[in-house]
Computed example of a mutant assay.
Amino acid sequence: MKSVHFLSAFVLLALASSIASAYDPTPLQDFCVAINDTETGIFVNGNLCKDPTLATVDDFTYRGLNIPADTNNQLGSYVNRLSVDTFPGINTLGINLGRIDYAPGGVNPPHTHPRASEILHVQNGTLYVGFADSNNTLFSTILYPGDLFVFPLGMVHFQVNIGKTDAVAFASFGSQDPGFVNVANAVFGTNRLIKPEPLARAFMLDVNVVKDLQEKFLSSD
């Protein structure tokens, strides 16, 4: 009897572990093209799904990632990440893709993706990239056209164009919605500001410096 209880507990534990490690639900259908039609749509995984008999090849096609984006902004970069709104065919498939354009010196600032690992492919330019793990170890390198680099799930990472020309990279994600948390905005630019005193102590800054940073991040929204 004890062996039966042990086996049952083991099976439940294994099942719980498998559920906990699944970031996107495994689809139970061939596809689930996202749609906003509440009359005919079927609600699956946060989105309504088009009747599969009405799906067309256009639902699974996206055009336009060959077009350079405007990088004339404070960061000198622009991220065009797809979503089910722009590319409805990716809904429930557990994948996503984005194009990143960088002006010379442009930066994709330190950030995390809470729901997906990322693999970056450099098409043009020279990028300095890296991430820090939970032991504060930095893994960084310089990438050239054709190079790949992977950012593990949840790790703070960044990219900088260190070349003298524009750079382009494509990022692939293991989730249809990897999420995006800009570290600086999450610290200094929250819609309800964190009190400056704990931030000053945590970052070893003067309180007035923290207040100045908060004003800058709020004014940049």
Rank of each mutant, 00 (worst) to 15 (best):
V57G: 12
P104E: 00
L82A: 10
Q29N: 13
A116I: 05
L127R: 14
L127N: 14
N73L: 12
N73S: 11
N72I: 09
R81V: 14
N135F: 10
Q123G: 13
D51F: 02
G106V: 08
L75W: 03
G41N: 07
V150A: 15
L75F: 00
L143D: 13
P68G: 09
L65F: 14
P52D: 04
G76E: 06
L127Q: 11
D70A: 06
I35L: 11
F31I: 00
Y78I: 05
S21K: 13
S134P: 04
L153Q: 15
R81D: 14
T38S: 11
Y102M: 12
H157Y: 11
N45G: 02
F158S: 07
L93E: 03
F87K: 05
T53W: 10
N66Q: 14
D59Y: 08
P25M: 03
A34M: 11
A16H: 00
I142W: 00
S77V: 05
N124I: 01
L153C: 09
N72P: 04
L127H: 13
D30R: 13
F131I: 10
N72Y: 08
N96S: 12
F151H: 06
L82Q: 12
V160Y: 15
K50A: 03
T112N: 04
R99K: 09
A16W: 03
D58W: 12
N80Q: 15
I162Y: 02
D101W: 01
G105E: 06
H111R: 10
N108R: 04
N91A: 02
L138I: 15
R63D: 09
D147T: 10
N108M: 00
D101E: 08
N135W: 08
P27W: 00
A116L: 04
C49Q: 02
L127G: 12
T112I: 15
S21R: 10
Q29R: 14
N36W: 13
Y144W: 10
L120E: 11
S117W: 03
L97I: 12
Y23I: 04
D101P: 04
N108K: 02
G98Y: 04
V107W: 07
L143E: 05
